[in-house]
Simulated assay, not measured.
Amino acid sequence: MVSTTFEHLDAHKQQRVLAALVTEFSQYPLAQAQVARIVKQADIARGAFYKYFSDLKDAYQYAFKEVIGRLHTGIAGPEMRRDPYAATAAFLHEADESKDRDFIRLHFTKNSGLVSVGEAPISENAIEWAVTTLCHSAISQALANPDQTDLILKHLKAALEQLHVKES
């Protein structure tokens, strides 16, 4: 969680720090990321980094929430919630076209098991839970194996049909 010190920075400095975080976490998995590179690119003191974030994991969680928020902006409408297949395909397309593509890919292939980034609550409805699990798994597999995206989406569609989840 970012500190109130960070929240009170002017927007330009916040964006500079965020850009440095995204660059670092797009090029290096969390386990290899370095505060030194982040503070150099952001043009802040090392001590300032630790005033803004408790550690690299904290900084990563902040950057992830910002990046995922940008991706979800275009696909968060009610029509997408009614059609999980379309939402998953749209997310993969947005991720692939995004300037944050490398960040997202590293998250799903290297970092997702290292940090908690606010997982969705588990639904009481077994079908909703299964759909959510399938869609997230499809995203993870497609980002790890981009050349298999069409096949993964084909399997997702078939599985959703078996669960009687219809497209809108």
Rank of each mutant, 00 (worst) to 15 (best):
D147L: 13
I44Q: 07
I75M: 08
A76M: 10
V17T: 02
S137Y: 06
L9Q: 01
Q61C: 14
T4W: 14
L106R: 06
K157N: 10
K65F: 06
L134P: 04
F25L: 01
F91I: 05
Y28S: 14
P146Y: 08
H155E: 09
A138E: 00
R70C: 08
G77I: 10
R82E: 02
E128Y: 05
G118H: 01
E167Y: 11
L30E: 03
R16K: 11
S54N: 06
Q32V: 13
A144Y: 02
I68P: 07
A86F: 04
I68M: 12
Q15S: 09
A90F: 03
E128D: 08
I127A: 06
W129E: 07
T23L: 13
H12K: 14
S98D: 02
T23Y: 12
L71A: 01
Q15P: 05
D96C: 15
V115R: 00
T132P: 09
R81N: 11
K157H: 10
A36V: 14
E119M: 13
L92F: 02
L153F: 00
V67G: 00
E124H: 11
F108D: 02
V17K: 00
A86R: 05
S112A: 15
Y28E: 15
T73I: 10
H72D: 08
A11Y: 04
G69T: 10
R82S: 05
H107M: 01
H107I: 02
K166C: 11
E119L: 15
Q141L: 12
A36F: 13
V17C: 00
K99M: 14
A90V: 14
A159V: 06
L151C: 00
K110A: 07
I127H: 04
R46G: 08
Y52Q: 03
A90Y: 04
K154R: 15
E7G: 14
A19T: 15
T132W: 15
Q14D: 01
P84R: 03
G69K: 10
D58T: 12
R81A: 12
K99A: 11
E24M: 05
D100K: 01
G77M: 07
A126Y: 05
S98W: 01
E128A: 06
N145P: 06
I68T: 15
I127T: 13
I68E: 15
R46E: 11
A42N: 00
Y50S: 03
N111M: 08
V131K: 03
Q27I: 06
D150Y: 09
K157R: 10
N111R: 05
Y85R: 07
H164K: 07
K57F: 06
A95S: 05
L9K: 02
L163Q: 03
Y85A: 05
A48G: 12
L160A: 05
R37S: 12
S137W: 10
F25W: 01
A48L: 13
H136K: 09
R70K: 06
K166E: 09
P84Y: 03
D150E: 15
